Simulated assay, not measured.
Amino acid sequence: MVWKSITRSSIGTTHKQQQKPCQDYGCCTICHSVILGAVADGAGSAKFSDIGAKLAVETALDELLQLGEYTLYLHCPPKPLPDEQARIIFANTLKEVVAALEKEAASSSYSIDDLACTLLVFIATPNWISAMQVGDGFIVIHPQEEEYQLLFSPDKGEFINETTFVTSANALNDMQVCVKSGKQSFICASTDGLERVAIQMNNWTPFSPFFKPLEEYLWETSNPEQNDEYIRNFLESDRLNAQTNDDKTLLLCLYD
């Protein structure tokens, strides 16, 4: 059995009209039986948040790859990481992300706030998943023989479109971390552009009809990265764009 995955982003209709770049970024990497994934959503008010989102994702994955070379890949434990160890790992990852953004800002002579973005990261094995979230967006899992589960309630501030960014002073304190044991057949990470169609806002539960076709697509597709027409058409469809004008990112994983 192996992990299959695909990550795709689509620019929102508002950004198209304003001739702005897509401010989302996502990526994942597979090594042996472990998959690492991250997605970030650049702040709409931040001038270079598209650069910040890409740098945050790449830095987070690089940091976890260096950490995992021994502890995760070569000796992948059947039992999940202890909660405290997971929090330490993700706290260190977040610190490295902030350091990379500070370095980028200094070298380009602009404020680190110009790179503001949210960040969601996960480490998954066939037997457990550990994840962190700073800001909004969502990670949904489908454990075997259970219902779809939302790992975190999205971080929403007091006002509309207010959330925590990795560049916020309180980012480390507001970082959410969780560890879930059990076999994970499907994982979906996304930025907040898809929240209103994927998550039932009245009780913060996944909307199964949104996720089921995506999971079935992975089951039926031998190489999702090459056969990506279904995902691209979905993200760029008029029907979806009628419900959200924001940038949209999907990171999908399946252990098959």
Rank of each mutant, 00 (worst) to 15 (best):
E63G: 13
A116G: 07
I6L: 14
N173E: 15
W204I: 08
L55W: 08
K54N: 06
L194H: 01
K183N: 10
D256Q: 12
E58K: 11
L119V: 00
Q226K: 15
F211E: 03
E220I: 04
S168G: 02
E229T: 14
I231K: 08
S181K: 08
Q200D: 11
E162K: 13
A169C: 12
G182H: 09
A38S: 01
P78T: 01
T13W: 00
L252I: 03
Y230I: 07
V98E: 05
E220M: 03
Q17F: 00
E195N: 08
T7N: 07
T244D: 03
N245D: 15
V121H: 07
A242T: 10
C76N: 02
C22I: 01
A116V: 08
I129D: 09
Q243H: 13
P206E: 00
V177E: 03
A171H: 03
Y73Q: 04
G157I: 03
T93W: 14
M201A: 13
D238A: 12
V179R: 06
F207D: 11
I160R: 06
D174S: 10
L115F: 05
V57C: 02
L218Y: 00
T191Q: 00
D83M: 15
I89W: 13
L250R: 07
V34H: 09
G157W: 05
D50I: 04
S208T: 13
V57K: 00
I199G: 01
D192R: 02
D83R: 14
T125G: 03
E145P: 09
Y230S: 10
C253R: 05
F211I: 07
S237Y: 09
P126M: 02
K212E: 11
S208Y: 08
S190E: 08
L119K: 15
L74M: 09
V34N: 07
A38T: 00
I141V: 05
G42Y: 08
S185P: 14
I112S: 12
S181Q: 10
S130L: 00
A105C: 14
F165C: 11
A106P: 08
P82A: 03
D192K: 01
T13V: 02
T59K: 01
N161D: 10
S185I: 05
K16G: 00
A43Y: 11
L194G: 00
T205G: 09
Q243K: 14
E216M: 12
I187V: 10
S237M: 11
N241V: 12
R87V: 10
S109H: 13
S49L: 01
R232Q: 10
S10G: 08
S109V: 10
K248Q: 14
Q144P: 05
K4Y: 08
A91T: 15
Y25H: 04
F210L: 06
S237K: 15
Q149W: 06
E147V: 04
E229G: 11
Q19Y: 07
N127G: 13
V140E: 02
S45N: 00
V179K: 05
L235C: 00
L150A: 12
C31Y: 15
F48H: 13
N241I: 12
Q149H: 09
A131S: 00
L119A: 12
V2F: 14
Y73F: 10
G135E: 09
M175H: 06
F122R: 01
A46I: 05
L115R: 01
D114W: 04
H15N: 01
L65S: 14
S130N: 02
S190P: 12
E162H: 12
Y148T: 03
K212S: 14
T167D: 01
P154N: 05
I160F: 06
Y230Q: 10
T13R: 00
E236R: 02
D114Q: 05
S111H: 09
L115Q: 03
